[in-house]
């Protein structure tokens, strides 16, 4: 701010005026935001098949149906758990494999897209854009197209999630890479190490804990994604859920078993990954 030749004669009035203007702008922003939100909800309500207020009393109808169907057959639940365990395993496998492969691709992409580490510095924007596109691609797009070509099953979901994971983790990894110390790389270069050796021996040991933490978080997200993709036709627990749901009343005990399995899986992996990540932070991983 430049010094004005005539200093304000009444600082207090100026201050109050400034505060009032600030408050006005803040209030206006909030009002516009609230207006957007309310009108948005009204618009969404109009375009919905059933209205919000007419549907609200029925929110619990479906859980009640499921309960009414499942409660008398509660003794069959353990059996259902056993039946659906393989498809749950498939869902977890899809998530795990796509996290592993996606992370491997992301490591390479992120190295190629980080200044100071890139093999071809001029191609950095190319790899950044590529990661942006991969990240922007919703899993369902690739999954549906691949289901058409490859048929239903876990592979389309796996490829779809891998693709997105590679982009999403690639961006996070390249942010981690930017904070890596370049001295070990220079040291390795001075003894004639190639690019792969420099990255493997100079960068990876520095960033591995962070990679691992992001990878775990992604794994958790991917479990949810693979369950959802199952619902649109790729295999796993989502597919079983869809079958049980479209059967309707009479098979809701199976649906209930799947709900419980899915819920428990998500909660367990959620807690597990947050424990491990907490542990990493406290152990002093960068």
């Amino acid at each position: 701010m430049s010094l004005s030749p005539n200093p304000p004669h009444d600082p207090r009035a100026n201050y109050i005026q400034m505060m009032q203007r600030k408050r006005l702008y803040g209030g206006l922003t909030m009002a516009i935001f609230a207006l957007l939100l309310v009108s948005g909800f009204m618009l969404a309500n109009d375009r919905n098949a059933g209205g919000f207020w007419s549907g609200l009393p029925h929110v619990l109808d479906f859980p009640a149906d499921v309960w009414a169907d499942a409660a008398p057959k509660v003794d069959q639940l353990p059996g259902h758990f056993l039946t659906f365990f393989p498809s749950l395993l498939e869902t977890i496998n899809i998530a795990a494999v796509s996290t592993l492969i996606g992370a491997a691709i992301a490591v390479v992409l992120s190295m190629l897209a980080t200044r100071g580490l890139a093999l071809w510095p001029r191609a950095i924007p190319v790899f950044r854009r590529a990661m942006d596109i991969m990240r922007a691609m919703p899993e369902i797009v690739i999954a549906l197209v691949l289901i058409f070509v490859l048929g239903g099953g876990p592979v389309p979901a796996m490829i779809a999630i891998t693709f997105h994971t590679a982009g999403a983790l690639g961006k996070l990894f390249s942010e981690v890479n930017e904070n890596a110390d370049l001295k070990p790389i220079e040291g390795l270069q001075s003894v004639g190490a190639g690019w792969v050796q420099r990255m493997w021996l100079g960068v990876i040991p520095q960033v591995a804990p962070n990679y691992f933490s992001y990878g775990l978080l992604r794994f958790e997200i991917n479990i949810r994604a693979s369950a959802i993709l199952g619902f649109v036709g790729a295999g796993g627990i989502g597919y079983e859920l869809k079958n049980a749901m479209s059967w309707g009343l009479g098979k809701f005990d199976e649906a209930a078993a799947i709900f419980i399995l899915l819920f428990l899986t998500i909660v367990v992996f959620d807690q597990l990954s947050s424990r491990v990540r907490q542990g990493l932070i406290h152990k002093g991983g960068h």
């Binding site: 375009r47 919905n48 059933g50 549907g55 609200l56 029925h58 929110v59 859980p63």
Partner: peptide, 11 residues
């Protein structure tokens, strides 16, 4: 669960 109560749509 929600689409059972509110029907399909953005809401």
């Amino acid at each position: 669960v929600l689409s059972r109560a509110f029907g399909p749509g953005p809401m």
